[in-house]
Design a protein around this nucleic acid. Structure first.
Lengths: 167, 167
DNA sequence: GCAGGATATTTCGACGTCGAAGTATCTTCA
DNA sequence: TGAAGATACTTCGACGTCGAAATATCCTGC
């Protein structure tokens, strides 16, 4: 399975076909990993002076965009596409920093609401301005490239169900 | 700085321009983060039964591609674009699993060579076949999309110096 | 020949993320 | 209505990654 098996020309051609395909896939996968590393490093570097990370910023921004400034933990995980344990961790840190408060859910005693504080809102503003100013680490790409990137990845996300109506 | 300041139409237009730009950048950044999460999850899931992670697989594959099957720790970090501490960690785990051995560098006593073992080579083969078969989690993208992705990210990587002659 | 600076690794602590297991609380349906 | 299953969180341990500090070993210029 590892190398083309000998002399069958059809198998050989097929193997080459598959191999070209695979090389492209590996290159793309590697590129994606590296792109994430680049963007995250740039963004986190900007956020560090503010005492934030991108992960926590995302939670804060999500809450700030909400009508009442609060959301059940589970919803946060759904929107941000991370496991519940990750939300617990982020909210713990945000709460330690006084940027978010946990409150009881009014009707469901299993659930916990994360509620953004005034300080949290102010910091979210500042952080958003900061990241907007450096274009989220993507200042070197033009608008067309940005849209292309988002579109292609959109295909991938659609394929894995990111945009299901259920969500 | 947070919201457009009142009535100046030029400022307002400029703000809108900037905002559109920024929205694209944020969308692209979010897409990149999510794409990495999708690809890494898919790849790691395939590798888990083999007792590997993508990070360790990359080290193994890099060593396997080398003439003598060995490389100084520092070189590994350079090629894989990770910090020295990350290489130390990966090689520690690979060494515990008998997939790699540390050896003294013949001429530079500061340096350490990571050397792939026979078991390491065999596992790298199997892992490569496995990942090739599932196209590195990108089976849902066609060849054109894969190349587009790699090309656009290439622009970004060039901008941050990934392809400097020095490297 | 040696002092000072560069380079190669490791150690340490911090963080985000995951998966699995555990606990508390709904909800459903027989 | 009461047991069985679904949900919402948290806890725990594992892992990859980083940045900073520490250690050991070159290397350079005087």
């Amino acid at each position: 399975m590892t190398s083309p098996s000998g002399s069958d020309p059809i198998a050989a051609a097929s193997a080459n076909w598959v191999r070209r395909d695979v090389v492209d896939a590996m290159a793309a996968a590697t590129s994606i990993m590296r792109a994430q590393q680049i963007v995250l490093a740039a963004v986190d570097a900007e956020l560090r002076p503010l005492g934030l990370t991108f992960a926590r910023f995302e939670v804060l921004r999500l809450l700030a965009f909400t009508r009442r400034g609060e959301l059940p933990m589970g919803k946060i995980g759904e929107r941000l596409m991370v496991q519940p344990a990750t939300v617990t961790n982020s909210v713990n840190r945000l709460e330690s920093d006084g940027l978010v408060e946990r409150r009881a859910h009014p009707t469901d005693r299993r659930a916990t609401l994360a509620c953004i504080t005034a300080r949290g809102r102010r910091l979210a503003e500042r952080a958003t301005d900061t990241l907007d100013a450096m274009r989220y680490g993507l200042a070197d790409l033009d608008d067309a490239d940005l849209r292309t990137l988002t579109a292609v990845i959109g295909t991938l996300r659609r394929a894995v169900g990111d945009f299901d109506d259920a969500a």
